[in-house]
Design a protein around this nucleic acid. Sequence first.
DNA 1: CATGGTATGCGAGCACTGTTCACAATGTCA
DNA 2: TGACATTGTGAACAGTGCTCGCATACCATG
Lengths: 244, 244
Amino acid sequence: MSMVFAKMFLSGQTGDMTTRRERLRAATYEEIKTAALAQITAVGGSSLSLRGVAREIGMSPAGLYRYYDGRDELLTDLITDAYNDLATTVESAMDAGGDSMHDRFAEGMRAYRRWGLEFPNRFLLIFGTPIPGYEAPEAGSTVEGNRRMGEAFFAVGAEAWRRGQLSVPTSARTATKGERDLAFEIDPQMPPQLVPVMLGTWAHFHGLVTLEVLGQFQWLYGDRSDVLFESEIERLLAGIGLMI
Amino acid sequence: MSMVFAKMFLSGQTGDMTTRRERLRAATYEEIKTAALAQITAVGGSSLSLRGVAREIGMSPAGLYRYYDGRDELLTDLITDAYNDLATTVESAMDAGGDSMHDRFAEGMRAYRRWGLEFPNRFLLIFGTPIPGYEAPEAGSTVEGNRRMGEAFFAVGAEAWRRGQLSVPTSARTATKGERDLAFEIDPQMPPQLVPVMLGTWAHFHGLVTLEVLGQFQWLYGDRSDVLFESEIERLLAGIGLMI
DNA sequence: CATGGTATGCGAGCACTGTTCACAATGTCA
DNA sequence: TGACATTGTGAACAGTGCTCGCATACCATG
């Protein structure tokens, strides 16, 4: 919707050269995506129905193929959006953590969880069972959001390390080439042992969120799973040296 | 399945009292489940096709309804199997860990991961996006495998605690009623603070396995993700006091 | 053994899905 | 205005889960 107005706003300017048709087309794209997003939010990605969104926006099913080359392409678009939405949510939450590395981490994780609980079907669209037939385009737009989120977490980790707040583990094994390369890319001085620790930390709270989204803590915590998450955050951050 | 036993129970008593019909019926059940399992292993649960398994075993689609009351019931049966299969796998792997609590934990987690990587589609059948329309029967058979696995892990944790090998966290918060009740049920002396720690530990390696099954570590580790998992196991066990 | 009831299987059909294709209407531009 | 590209449609095809009525096999009982 806002996209529509943005397009119309831009149409007045010189460089954009939007014809009437292009504006209509952009609006239709938005309409399709809005309807599809609503359907996914309600019933989940695997039961997204092309004919359903066609019905919703008052278009024939065949007409949708002028915009998306089938169901998978529409899904890819929505997965991309979900990734980016989650990424920006986490990023801005981290900024709200202020100058404390502990708080930046904690706020990022809380935002991750909140987003997952608010949009469980979109969360599972990203981290649940892959839609059959859907294949993530290699180095495509869906991995972009993934990269952004990883970058955000690694950035905070690197800064915490620079400040000497991160305890470097005395690892029993030598780092892999990938770990060394990545660490060097983030900060040439950063010890590669921190890479698996950061990934493991992500896996830790990601596992908590996943299981909670799937309702696996319901039997024990009911609607009070937040106390589990909060205590785990503290334990997890203490594990890498970031005391409260 | 339960229907068969009910019939046998009603018709006579001792289990060997099988008529020709009942034997055929049991065999057909097995054939259906085998075909369905093969299909799920290959293409995933959400694209399990009733007509497909009917074709596979040379039966009409309608005939299947004499055995399963629709697709969801067939899926429920396979989910139950997957749960129990994973549970027994983990249980027996733990036993292979011998007397060391560290090793029992580690072997259990490794078995969890191995099973997930060997049967990714069955793993996602349990821990991925729930099949639309499928609802876990309340206190039904699917939660049984879940309970078994939780029990196995909690048992090892409790034993480690009894031996004084588990570091009890100085938690900042008071335990919830559920945590206290569960701890008391496991061992009346066990500190309730250990409950969230055990659950968080499960979430930690579950997150690692989930992300690996979904291929999220591929870009960094390729086919060598095991080094990440192994170092995380050690870090995770050290976190609860179980040194190597 | 014969018979009646039951368990099992099948074909046809319904409502739905994603997708393709020929065709008509509409917007854009020389 | 005429030529062309863009957009939308209805019909159709193959696939799905599922229901129903009908036929056949089985099995316990008279």
